[in-house]
Design a protein around this nucleic acid. Structure first.
Length: 272
DNA sequence: ACTGGATCCTGACTGC
DNA sequence: TGCAGTCAGGATCCAG
């Protein structure tokens, strides 16, 4: 489900309910996520206070006071909601974090590609976070950076853009959208895109992600913020999911191709 | 070192 | 209505 904007919208939705609050424990109904949920999660969390809810790439970081961080990943189908503790869980509500005051932070994830990980170390040292590329909304993402990193690379520029070692947070929807805005064909070899076009691409990535966050994310099926509101960016998507529709700029039909086993949408007139 | 493909899992949708 | 096949917002792992 979520790319960076949806994770960030979720973070902003849950943070006011979670930050500064003490955890009374955890209830794990289904530990078989991408990696097993820690068996002693309840004991680890009980009585500890959440200092901050942060985000790195598509991971949410619940930083506990003193030390230790809970890493949450939503995978393809995960979502987080803050609900009253007495709310009956539905089929795929795998983990509850019990908050003082009678609410729970509830993780739902039908496909179970998500993750709940614990680390007592500084989270940037965790194997899942070490080695990640820069945040796309930081000053580190520049055209020069993308240009340098792409030299000699023969994979499609869309796959290059979705490589978390290069830059984090750009998933299948926003990769198509950013490449459209930058006028770059998604299947072009990354190493054969020039510096000037990477400058356009870096700006396009940041712009599309910021606009999506401002719109509350993209709701395709059932994405909602931590408070249950859907995102309204879907109607702003220029190419994703719009095969056969007219390009808003040149009027030619939007095409769909499979690149790296993922559907990719582009305008054959505007993108080279 | 890079690259593409297979893989984890369930649900929604399509076509017959 | 039922059933088989296809596809889905992620990211890791593995073989070549």
């Amino acid at each position: 489900m979520p790319e960076l904007p949806e994770v960030e919208v979720t973070r902003r939705g849950i943070a006011p309910h979670v930050e500064g609050r003490r955890l009374e424990g955890a209830r794990v109904r289904e530990p078989r996520l991408r990696w097993p949920v820690p068996e002693d999660l309840d004991a680890i969390l009980r009585g500890r206070r959440v200092a901050a809810v942060e985000r790195r790439a598509k991971y949410l970081l619940l930083r506990l006071e003193s030390s230790g961080t809970l890493l949450l990943h939503l995978g393809m189908s995960g979502s987080l909601r803050v609900v009253p503790a007495e709310t009956p869980p539905t089929a795929h509500d795998h983990v509850d974090l019990l908050l003082e005051g009678g609410m729970v932070l509830r993780l739902r994830d039908p496909r179970r590609f998500g993750a709940v990980l614990w680390t007592p170390e500084p989270p940037e040292r965790h194997p899942r976070l070490a080695g990640l590329g820069p945040e796309p909304l930081s000053p580190e993402l520049t055209g020069d950076y993308l240009y340098r990193r792409s030299r000699g690379r023969r994979l499609a520029v869309k796959n290059f853009l979705m490589d978390a070692q290069v830059v984090v947070g750009v998933g299948n929807i926003y990769a198509s959208e950013a490449l459209y805005r930058a006028g770059i064909h998604p299947g072009r070899e990354a190493g054969r895109v020039g510096r000037d076009r990477y400058v356009l691409l870096a700006a396009a990535v940041a712009a599309v992600l910021e606009e999506a966050i401002a719109a509350g994310g993209t709701t395709l099926r059932d994405f909602t913020s931590g408070e249950g509101a859907p995102g309204y960016f879907r109607q702003e998507l220029a190419v994703y999911g719009r095969e056969g529709e007219a390009c808003p700029v040149c009027g030619r039909g939007i095409r769909k191709v499979v690149i790296g086993q993922r559907s990719s949408f582009f305008c054959p007139g505007c993108q080279r």
